[in-house]
């Protein structure tokens, strides 16, 4: 679970984003991002051949209703073909940041 705080309440026209930095996940793995109460934020699946390199930082918009009291509680998990979903390791998801952009 990751908890992030908004720098300020969202104003009209503003959008919040989470940037998720993904390490060298393999084919058949994806990073699913939801809020703690299950609201889907997005799924990350790298495109192209995987050669053991990191998958980069992926940006997902966050709807205003995902925040409670200015904070965002996120649950990240690795979905995979060869086992049940599990939390990512620190190497698989090395950073999650929150930012706000204006109109």
């Amino acid at each position: 679970m990751v908890t992030l705080a908004l720098p300020h309440a969202l104003r009209p026209g503003e959008t919040a984003f989470v940037a998720v930095t993904v390490g060298p996940i393999t084919r058949g793995q994806e990073v699913e991002v939801t809020t703690a109460d299950g609201l889907a934020i997005g799924t990350i699946t790298p495109f192209g051949p995987r050669r053991g390199q990191g998958a980069g930082t992926h940006t997902l918009p966050v709807p205003a209703e995902a925040f409670h009291d200015g904070t965002l509680a996120l649950r990240l998990r690795i979905n995979r073909f060869d086992g049940p979903p599990r939390p990512p390791t620190a190497a698989e998801v090395s950073a999650v940041t929150l930012s706000v952009t204006g109109p």
Partner: peptide, 17 residues
């Protein structure tokens, strides 16, 4: 090629991929 330092914009990283 995309790697550790790559930052994907929303449209490329989400609908495109």
């Amino acid at each position: 090629m995309p790697g550790n330092d790559t930052k994907f914009s929303v449209l490329e990283g989400q609908p495109h991929n």
